[in-house]
């Protein structure tokens, strides 16, 4: 298995890669607030248009961004369905009576089995899912044979559809924004940016430098710990620990046989790392200089101006309408 890339940073060139991480963090923050200030679909559509133009200017592959959306695709579907089902304002778009009787339930099971079998092909998973849902809908709508033990009126209202599109679009924009952030910023730069932004918090006793150090060290060791977990699993598997089968009691033992060594190695490593750092005169709490100093450039200034304009624009829109 390849090492996990946190936040999926992919190296590249272009506008976004040259920005200071602090600019990016603050921009994303203000942009997200702006998006939440928008009130209707038209405004959202304009926002998406602007976003796409920015992506093209920044030479970010829209494909990569869409790929990053795959994991939350199911979430989006659920959000959509929820809004449609729960909202009851506006004109009625369609009203259907769903019949639940022995036959419709049986056929729904058959439809389910067919869907699972078709999934084995491996392709068109999303398309098959939609066909499955449609099939279920027609099944319960039209198959009213025999004794009904339950009926349900599924009403879709105009406002419901509108709201769901709105919510889904908004979610899409938010996730795209954060994807751009993690796509174009190295985790270490991100940490450094956050540390710098949180510097004022020192006054209330929160040491942002220590916090950033903890995050950096954790990030750096994720691949190492992952490799070690693989090694220990291989060693215990060679002693017969089958991580996939077994009763609950056996499984517990197997998990312990993985966790105990991992913890011990982690503690040993922490001590060694602490010794190594102290040998190089690291003292927690003391001021340290950096080898990479974050510097603002003109690009950051232009971006800041643009973001500020967007932000003010959305506030005005909100206030005036």
């Amino acid at each position: 298995m390849n090492s996990i890339i946190i936040g999926q940073y992919i190296p590249g060139k272009g506008f976004f890669y040259k920005l200071d991480p602090r600019t990016k963090i603050l921009s994303i923050l203000f942009l997200m607030i702006s998006v939440f200030l928008l009130e209707n679909i038209t405004q959202l559509a304009i926002a998406i248009g602007i976003a796409i133009i920015i992506l093209i200017i920044g030479k970010i592959s829209i494909l990569k961004v869409l790929k990053g959306l795959k994991p939350i695709f199911v979430l989006l579907i659920f959000t959509f369905i929820f809004q449609v089902a729960l909202n009851s304002e506006g004109a009625i778009l369609s009203s259907a009576l769903l019949h639940f009787n022995i036959f419709s339930v049986l056929t729904s099971i058959v439809i389910f089995i067919i869907w699972r079998l078709l999934l084995q092909i491996g392709k068109f998973k999303i398309l098959l899912f939609f066909i499955f849902v449609l099939a279920l809908y027609f099944n319960f709508r039209y198959l009213s044979i025999g004794q009904e033990f339950y009926s349900f009126r599924l009403t879709i209202y105009e406002k419901g559809v509108e709201m769901s599109i709105f919510v889904v679009l908004r979610l899409l924009i938010i996730i795209t924004l954060t994807t751009i952030l993690t796509l174009t910023t190295k985790p270490t730069d991100l940490t450094q940016g956050m540390e710098s932004l949180m510097h004022p918090l020192k006054k209330i006793g929160f040491n942002s430098e220590d916090f950033a150090l903890i995050i950096s060290i954790s990030l750096r060791y994720i691949p190492t710990i992952f490799d070690e977990a693989q090694k220990i699993m291989a060693a215990q598997a060679s002693r017969g620990a089958d991580f996939s089968e077994g009763k609950l009691k056996d499984k517990m033992k197997q998990i312990i046989s993985l966790l105990v060594p991992m913890f011990i190695i982690a503690f040993i490593r922490s001590e060694e790392l602490a010794d190594a750092m102290e040998s190089r005169n690291f003292v927690p709490g003391e001021k340290r200089t950096r080898i990479n100093i974050l510097r603002f450039s003109m690009i950051d200034v232009y971006s800041a101006v643009f973001i500020t304009l967007c932000f003010i624009g959305t506030i005005l829109l909100r206030v005036m309408t």
Binding site: K231, I232, A234, A235, Q236, S238, R239, I256, S257, V260, P261, I264, I265
Partner: peptide, 10 residues
């Protein structure tokens, strides 16, 4: 038996 099998003790 892997290298450094001591680490499998638990």
């Amino acid at each position: 038996v892997f290298q450094f099998p001591e680490y499998q003790l638990f």
